[in-house]
Design a protein around this nucleic acid. Structure first.
Lengths: 145, 145
DNA sequence: ATATTTTAAGACATAATAGTATTAAATCTT
DNA sequence: AAGATTTAATACTATTATGTCTTAAAATAT
């Protein structure tokens, strides 16, 4: 059940690494993240570029450079990242891929799919990076291998 | 939120078409299905080959040939089709793609993901083709464009 | 100034998925 | 038996996703 693209998964894991491992606002070397999480450096860099251009991250080149959250971790939600990296219509697709599937002309699995989808969306909408970071440290959850 | 591959979606829609539109056990022309559901004939044929070899469908060549359910529609469940066309581990993957994610070493979204996943799996496990076919006819649900 | 560190950007390569075309085999009709 | 119809099997092409590599640009340190 592959739901998220690699790019999105990497983005999420990397952001969660930053908020859980680093003091707020600190610039983190992309090389360190890619190493710790076992993600291709260049691939991660590309993903981060999207997040930087979208104003989620800020970046700084040169020695002691890196990336840092551009906004307070309390104000960034997982759904923001997902919408950025998967596209804005991510939570709107029919499970069977039918265009215009909805209450008016539902597909056979519309009813139960829409309820699960909405619940999932709500979880991502309310989960902030700050909250997740705290949870990760408290419960010692893992982000890498 | 693309969860199922095209092949799987086509397989599900096609089977639901058969059980909802045709008398039980009838052989249906693949060309008719691909036309009605607006699916590439050859692609659908390939998908059906998997289902035929797995014993879900039986096929017959020549004039008036086609495919038909090989077992009673009450005994075929959506999860069977999904496992065949997506792979047997479909409902076992970590949302963040971490190998060995589980109770012992959970990822940050393990808890809520596993509950949604289990609920979804249960729906597919208990939904038979017969049941779905009846629902489709009763509620006039759609399978194509 | 020059060299070093680091992200940015884009080109290139590989793999997975999706879609198309061709040929073969089985069955039916006449 | 001949020809038409229909699935089976294989091969080929196209598209997208993923991953790698190279060069450029920016900042720092010496």
């Amino acid at each position: 059940m592959k739901v998220l693209s690699k790019s999105c998964v990497y983005g999420l894991r990397a952001l969660l690494y930053i908020v859980s491992e680093k003091p707020r606002g600190a610039f983190v070397n992309i090389g360190e993240i890619s190493e710790q999480l076992n993600i291709s450096f260049h691939f991660l860099t590309k993903t981060f570029q999207v997040l930087t251009q979208a104003g989620i991250l800020q970046s700084y080149r040169g020695p002691n450079g890196g990336v840092a959250l551009a906004r307070p971790a309390e104000e960034v939600f997982l759904i923001d990242i997902i919408h950025l990296l998967e596209g804005p219509g991510f939570f709107d697709n029919c499970l069977l891929g039918l265009a215009g599937c909805g209450e008016a002309a539902p597909c056979p699995v519309h009813d139960f799919w829409i309820s699960h989808k909405a619940a999932l969306k709500e979880e991502f909408r309310t989960a902030s990076l700050a909250q997740m970071g705290a949870r990760i440290n408290m419960k010692k959850l893992r982000l890498g291998p």
